[in-house]
Design a binder for these strands. Structure first.
Length: 548
DNA sequence: CTTAGGG
DNA sequence: CCCTAAG
């Protein structure tokens, strides 16, 4: 067994943090969106300063629901694949979601499965439950074998338990607190834990639309948060479940021309959920249960919303073209929202947290409270079922489904902002959040690409002109203080690419063209500061005379 | 935690 | 964008 470098743990920890923060951010964003709904301000809180263009482009979306329901009936499940469920989406012109992959990932890493098919859908779940270290341990122990059997794609890892534990325990106080609470709960509830009693599966990974970036902002560690992580969220992730899938669908305007608009849904997340199943159940039934739970959640009804430039398009009769989603158009901000419509009679027995007998409210207490204070805490509508097999859907996250979407038209390819609405079963809380953060956070995935706008570039150039090229933290604070999705490393990287861009011919450039004027300034500033730096470096160690 | 650079 | 060695 190759030794595990510290970096691994660090990485993990880092990821974890991100996840947590993301959840937090999500909630915060949602809250912010709801709060600022009326002024239709940006849903990217505090994006300010010179870099406001980004914010400006992301208008808040009003709470709205859409009637259209995903044609889940078309979901086809293939069993026997890697970890049980592989899904494929059919091309029907409508978005069709197919569970593709679902597995437990006690290691905390998301089993990512890419679908080569343009229509492939991927659905995965990973255990994110780690904050409840003790509980996780129990679960891990109890399901270890199962995991191995049921999922060849996970990262069970021999380091699972330990890594898990050390990794998650080491983080924030909330984690600790939760861990203890969960431990206690697990103990009381299952007397002996899952290892000896029934096994409960926690599919985690949920993103919780969490609280406030305001809070986040006050967090001393916020710099780290720049990546979209929220420390507090972790607590809420107990038993979270996350799934993500990617799919590509096609829609074509029903007009005369046959231009097609390509849409690429990169991810899909379902709310966290818990599954309770007798220990006497077979692995096969376990797999089926998980599959059932996941599919039932979707079957309960997923309403899809389409947002273009932040505005929802409710008229289902409009053609894409009429709505402005057409070939040749500059599509840089199309979002989809999904929300679950869980029914009381949910066959899978999806239950909201409050109904859980373990890892219930008191366990999630601190975070839960925070969460409930959020505008959409109402999302936890009462619903529950008592089936032999129970699935718990965390109310806070209940109904939260998000996916990042990428859209491209034949000539243009634009990365779209992913959004994630939080749905509440019976409520109308809906919010959008750049999914890039949430999703990535959950699965520790790469952030969604978010090209710099010209406005941002301008802000960056201006800041660098003033501060120089070696003070990225300052640049960030100066011009992107409110843009939490831009870290100083991002700014540094962007500058690097800008310099490169400025040095190549315009024909070689891609993406949204950056005004030549700005590029000129980039080169100019780069040259100036390079000289400055050279001076400093050359002077300090050795007097110039020595160089001569 | 930041910087600086390679990937 | 990510990853990370260095400071």
């Amino acid at each position: 067994m190759p030794r595990v470098p510290n970096s691994v743990w660090g990485k993990r920890t880092s990821r974890r943090k991100k996840n947590e923060m993301c959840a937090f951010d999500l909630l915060a964003t949602v809250a912010g969106t709801l709060l600022t709904d009326q002024d239709s301000s940006s849903n990217v809180p505090n994006t300010s300063g010179a870099a406001t263009s980004y914010a400006r482009n992301r208008k808040s979306v009003k709470e709205e629901y859409f009637d259209e329901i995903l044609p889940l009936k078309n979901v086809a499940v293939k069993k026997g694949c890697c970890s049980g469920c592989v899904a494929e989406a059919k091309h029907t012109g409508i978005l069709q979601l197919l569970p593709a992959y679902l597995t437990l990932d006690l290691d905390g890493r998301p089993p990512l499965v890419s679908s080569g098919s343009s229509s492939g859908v991927l659905l995965c779940s990973h255990n994110k439950e780690h904050k409840a270290a003790s509980l996780c341990q129990v679960q891990h122990t109890a399901n270890r074998d199962d995991d191995e059997n049921s999922s060849g794609c996970t990262h069970p890892s021999s380091t699972g338990n330990e890594g898990y534990k050390s990794h998650y325990l080491g983080n924030h106080r909330i984690r600790k607190l939760l861990a203890s609470k969960v431990k206690k709960a697990a103990h009381n509830k299952t007397s002996g834990g899952m290892s000896s009693k029934g096994s409960k599966l926690n599919f985690c990974g949920k993103k919780i639309p969490t609280t406030c970036q305001k809070v986040q902002r006050t967090n001393l560690k916020r710099k780290k948060l720049a990546r979209g992580t929220t420390p507090f969220a972790k607590g809420m992730l107990t038993g979270a479940s996350a799934t993500s899938f990617t799919t590509e669908g096609r829609s074509k305007p029903c007009e005369s021309e046959d231009y097609h608009v390509k849409l690429r849904i990169k991810s899909f997340n379902i709310p966290e959920l818990f599954v309770e199943i007798p220990e006497t159940a077979t692995i096969g039934s376990l797999k089926r249960t998980v599959m059932d739970v996941v599919t039932s959640i979707m079957e309960d009804g997923l309403r899809v919303g389409v947002l273009l430039q932040g505005k929802s398009i409710q008229d289902d009769s409009k053609t894409l073209r009429q709505a402005g989603i057409c070939h040749g158009e500059k599509l840089n901000n199309i979002d989809f929202t999904l929300d679950c419509e869980r029914r009381q009679d949910s066959p899978s027995g999806v239950i909201i947290p409050e109904e859980m007998d373990f890892v219930s409210a008191d366990i999630l207490e601190p975070l839960a409270r925070m969460n409930y204070e959020e505008p959409f805490h109402e999302t936890r509508g009462g619903r529950g079922n008592q089936h032999p097999i129970k699935a718990y859907l965390n109310g806070s996250h209940a109904g939260c489904v998000h996916r990042s979407v990428e859209m491209t038209s034949q000539d243009t390819s634009a990365s779209l902002q992913a959004i994630i609405p939080v749905a509440a079963s019976d409520l109308n809380a809906l919010a959008i959040v750049p999914i890039c953060e949430t999703r990535r956070s959950e699965i520790g995935q790469r952030r969604t690409r978010m090209p710099f706008s010209v406005g941002e570039v301008e802000a960056l150039v201006e800041a660098v002109e003033q501060l120089g090229t070696g003070r990225w933290r300052a640049v960030k604070m100066h011009a992107f203080d409110g843009a939490d999705h831009r870290t100083y490393v991002d700014l540094k990287d962007k500058w690097k690419t800008l310099v490169h861009t400025a040095n190549i011919s315009s024909q070689q450039r891609r993406g949204e063209p950056v005004p030549q004027e700005l590029l000129d300034r980039v080169l100019s500033a780069q040259a100036y500061w390079s000289r400055q730096q050279a001076k400093l470096h050359g002077k300090a160690p050795l007097p110039e005379v020595c160089l001569a």
